[in-house]
């Protein structure tokens, strides 16, 4: 299980990295934390001709407050930095609560935010959380710079809106609005495994206790983070009773997701889990919103 040969570059600035991507385009892979890419290379399932290693681009590792009360997170910010950041804990509690679900301590010491969303594993936590937060992703290439809504960034299985010469430089995560409750839960075979199904929820209540807005995002049940819009439509404008939440969760699990089956869980079981977890996270989010 030795990786195939490749040409290695370790740029020290974003400009340098972008120039390398412009030059090597389709042959190149970006090496961020490497926690998904390197095992894939060790199995020789990925054989990139060129690796552009961003680990020396120190300008990409940061967590900064944004004017809207949310945060800007640099693409090379490691999971452990997000997990232990006071800023994240204060401003983005949903993200803070989700971080320990990601793999194991050693992986979190290397893995990066930008790497995770660029890899776009539909069973991974950060793509789902980024979508739940209505995050925006800042992409750059030598051709220019653009911001892409998280909703538009994840386009398919391990596929994003990134062009071959583009890379993620930062992620903007707006705060959840006032009177918003949140929750995240997932079910995995072992602690730290990719979840069979995970669900994130954010529910905003109006002063009367009815749902003003909501987000429900599933992972592991489609080719990308899947939004439970049917549930949201059912909840909006209603005071969320236990029955309504159950109905919303069940409907979303029927209509909003497209689970696949594998050795660990059939599509039917994933659908079942999606309904159970959606009910649980919506219930908890509403409880928190009411607090």
């Amino acid at each position: 299980m030795k990786p195939p040969a490749f040409k290695y570059y370790a740029p020290s600035s974003v400009e340098e990295a972008l120039a390398l991507l412009a030059e090597h385009g389709y042959d190149a892979k970006i090496l961020a934390g490497g926690q998904s890419l390197i095992p894939t290379m060790n199995f020789r399932l990925a054989q990139p001709g060129v690796l552009v290693d961003l680990n020396r681009v120190s300008e990409l590792a940061f967590i900064r407050p944004a004017d809207d009360g949310g945060l800007l997170i640099g693409a090379m910010t490691r999971h452990v930095q997000v997990e232990t950041s006071d800023l994240v804990a204060q401003r983005l509690p949903l993200l803070h609560e989700t971080m320990p679900f990601i793999a194991h301590p050693q992986i979190r010491n290397r893995g990066t935010y930008g790497g995770s969303i660029s890899h776009a594993d539909p069973a991974a936590e950060l793509p789902a959380i980024t979508v739940t937060h209505r995050g925006k992703i800042h992409l750059r290439s030598t051709r220019g710079s653009r911001w892409v809504d998280a909703d538009d960034f994840f386009v398919g299985l391990f596929t994003t809106a990134l062009e071959p010469d583009e890379m993620v430089v930062e992620i903007a995560l707006p705060p959840l609005p006032p009177r918003t409750g949140w929750a995240f839960d997932e079910f995995s075979r072992r602690h730290g495994d990719f979840a069979l199904v995970g669900v994130a929820a954010a529910v905003t209540l109006d002063p009367a206790g009815a749902v003003e807005d909501a987000r429900l995002v599933f992972m592991g049940v489609g080719d990308r983070p899947m939004k439970g819009d049917t549930a949201v439509a059912l909840l909006r404008g209603q005071v969320p009773s236990a029955d309504l939440i159950e109905e919303a969760a069940t409907r979303a699990a029927q209509e909003d997701i497209d689970p696949f089956g594998d050795v660990h869980a059939s599509a039917a079981f994933r659908r079942h889990l999606a309904a159970v977890l959606a009910k649980r996270v919506l219930t908890r989010a509403v409880e928190r919103a009411n607090r």
Binding site: H191, D193, V263
Partner: peptide, 16 residues
């Protein structure tokens, strides 16, 4: 064999 890695052949950890 569909479970030929430690990602899919699930050896219990200290959590299990």
């Amino acid at each position: 064999m569909l479970t030929a890695s430690f990602m899919d052949y699930l050896i219990p950890t200290a959590m299990e």
